[in-house]
Design a protein around this nucleic acid. Structure first.
Length: 600
RNA sequence: GGGGCGGUAGCUCAAUUGGUUAGAGUACCGGCUUGUCACGCCGGUGGUUGCGGGUUCGAUUCCCGUCCGCCUCGCCA
């Protein structure tokens, strides 16, 4: 086999005159007849034109070249020269070409069902691309994403290793844990009727590693949660998982800020500046979401007090609501000019959008030169002065309201705010707004089951100044959790953990785990906390989402080499599939699924 | 589990009110072509209209069911 000396995509004018051997796939094939053939050869670094010229090469070489087709795998030895026919500015290697002297066909290819072409790929069904993933991954764009992902994990290892973090693997076959997402489960052959679970995260193991004196831990690990996927969510995903001993909240945030600062510097030569802080409640009030996108305004204002003085039944009814101890609210977004894109039809459509979040609709109006003009103008007119003062309105502004239970009104405007920004096209490109969200509540009230649930996870510590109210006022108690938000997306989340058994037991009690339950399910953790657990805390970065931001895609499948579809299938391998009945017997499993008999 | 959109040639799409032999581009195959680079020119092959059922003289088209893909609500400590 001809031995490669250079990568196709790396050749430049500096290589002119050199004899090189390149290997790769035939990207395109242009036969000019009578012994002049051009091919663009592709490897992971790019394309380079190879020319087979009768005047320069023996006839048998040209003869073999005649048989080449798309996606054939070849090795070529030849001399690099300035292109005789003029440069192609579309290629990085466009100034040069290789004049082939030796050609080795390494492998032919059947006619490929799809071609690895970035322009084509945007038009081809994702379903087809996923089935032939190995062809799709040959595309320059996909190679760029895989390479970028690799650079990110390498940077993470370098940065954290340089800061004293040790890479430690934790088990994949673990015990099922209550709370949280649905577990994937694995039958235990050696223990009939018992099951392992796949980890939703290495959370407990990394805490125990701190108890074990490892001080600083890093792992780039797969996590599995058996829940329905979304555009930015897969059942199987990757975390950059971290934990540190003898630290407080500030120490962890500083370390993690340093990581993203270094990463953005490395990848983009971009200074992320000072990362702002915002409390959870501030985020909810002003942005209606715990991961605000601060790249644009359109902040939310509570106008309940003003709405109470209107005669609008929708407002009045909402203000009379109560749920989980919270009164209903009326909130508003002021949309300044230019807002002409928000036509009557678009604004009416927002009510349909709002209904997906269980809101009745989103009333709106517009301030003209002489008062409110459309929509719910007549109800707003009597409180015009107050609205103008509170929202800072000027003529031309559109105001959109949500009136409902606190959580519904908040979420509706939080989501609508992002939609409006997209509709107005005011989301700035090329801007990286990092934000730490802190002071989360410890618990959320589950009205259906009448109990507290941990907002983050039940190992999150209250903030040091909050221990006093943990049990007396759990709904108010704030945690030592923190989320790193980038452009409205949570890229990392973590907390200082509970390292005191008594506190941990109190939290378990509050979320309705009896002492016996806690012992059975988390006994090993409680034991560990009793046996010399240092103060510790950590973070997990969502690697997939981080890569999505960095390469600029809104599809998580783009950043995973072998992703699954929305129904959890791998279209290439056709997993999941049936197993041999013998495997079921061995693992003591009997399926209750009704399987269609095979057709014949 | 709910809502929305989609599935026709290898790929991307078209097909009038339900009506003749389901078309086009591209890919592929054959021929021609010496500076192309989305090469060009000529010719050709290629169809379980996702699958199953129903209505009808006749279904890509209408109805029912089902499978698959995408977006989304719920869910995702």
């Amino acid at each position: 086999m001809l031995k490669r000396t250079n990568m196709c995509g790396s050749l430049r004018t500096g290589h002119v005159g050199q004899t090189v051997t390149v290997c790769g796939w035939i990207n395109t094939y242009r036969d000019q007849g009578r012994g002049l053939i051009f091919t663009d050869l592709r490897d992971r670094e790019g394309l380079c034109q190879v020319v087979f010229d009768l005047e320069q090469a023996p006839a048998d070489l040209v003869g073999l070249a005649k048989t080449l087709r798309r996606e054939y795998v070849i090795a070529v030895t030849g001399t690099v020269r300035i292109r005789a026919g003029g440069a192609n500015p579309k290629l990085a290697t466009g100034e040069v070409e290789i004049v082939a002297e030796k050609l080795e066909l390494l492998n032919a290819s059947e006619a490929p069902p799809i071609l690895p072409d970035d322009h084509e790929a945007e038009k081809i069904n994702e379903e087809t691309r996923l089935k032939y993933r190995y062809i799709d991954l040959r595309r320059p764009r996909m190679q760029h994403i895989l390479h970028t992902r690799s650079r990110i994990t390498k940077f993470a290892r370098d940065y954290f290793s340089g800061n004293g973090f040790m890479e430690i693997e934790t088990p994949l076959l673990i015990k099922t844990t209550p709370e949280g997402a649905r577990d994937f489960i694995v039958p235990a052959r050696l223990h009939p009727g018992k099951w392992y679970a796949l980890p939703q995260s290495p959370q407990l193991f990394k805490q125990i590693l701190m108890v074990a004196g490892c001080d600083r831990y890093l792992q780039i690990c797969k996590c599995m949660r058996d829940e329905d996927p979304r555009a930015d969510r897969q059942a199987e995903f990757t975390q950059i998982d971290l934990e540190m001993s003898f630290v407080e909240r500030e120490d962890v945030m500083e370390m993690m800020t340093g990581f993203v600062r270094g990463l953005w510097s490395e990848l983009f030569n971009y200074d992320i500046g000072t990362v702002q802080r915002m409390t959870y409640w501030d985020a909810m009030e002003r942005y209606g979401i715990d991961r605000p996108d601060t790249r644009y305004g359109l902040e939310i204002t509570d106008v309940s007090d003003i709405a109470a003085n209107t005669e609008f039944a929708v407002f009045k009814d909402a203000l009379g609501l109560t749920k989980a101890g919270r009164k209903g609210v009326v909130k508003a977004i002021r949309i300044p000019t230019p807002n002409e894109k928000l036509t009557r039809k678009v604004l009416d459509g927002y009510s349909e959008f709002a209904k997906t979040f269980k809101a009745g609709g989103v009333p709106f109006t517009k301030l003209g030169a002489n008062g409110f003009e459309t929509g719910v103008a007549k109800f707003c007119e009597p409180v015009k002065a107050e609205l103008i003062a509170k929202l800072g309105l000027v003529p031309g502004d559109i105001i959109v309201f949500a009136a409902d239970h606190y959580d519904i009104a908040t979420k509706t405007l939080g989501e609508l705010r992002q939609k409006i920004a997209r509709d107005l096209d005011i989301v700035p490109a090329g801007k990286w707004n990092f934000l730490w969200v802190v002071d989360f509540p410890m618990f959320d009230w589950d009205d259906d089951n009448k109990r507290w649930v941990a907002l983050h996870h039940p190992f999150t510590s209250p903030n040091p100044d909050q221990f006093g109210i943990l049990e007396s006022d759990p709904g108010v108690c704030l945690s030592a959790g923190y989320d790193l938000v980038l452009n409205g997306s949570e890229v990392a989340g973590g907390s200082i953990r509970i390292h005191n058994m008594k506190v941990q037991e109190a939290v378990f009690r509050l979320i309705g785990l009896t002492d016996d339950d806690a012992k059975m399910k988390f006994g090993f953790l409680l034991d560990a906390l009793r046996l010399g657990a240092p103060p510790h805390g950590g973070v997990a970065f969502g690697l997939d989402r981080l890569v999505m931001h960095i390469v600029g895609t809104d599809n998580i499948r783009d950043v995973i080499a072998f992703p699954k579809t929305q129904s959890g299938m791998d279209l290439m391998t056709e997993a999941p599939g049936p197993v041999d009945p013998e495997q079921l017997v061995e693992t003591h499993v009997r399926s209750t699924a009704v399987v269609e008999p095979a057709k014949h």
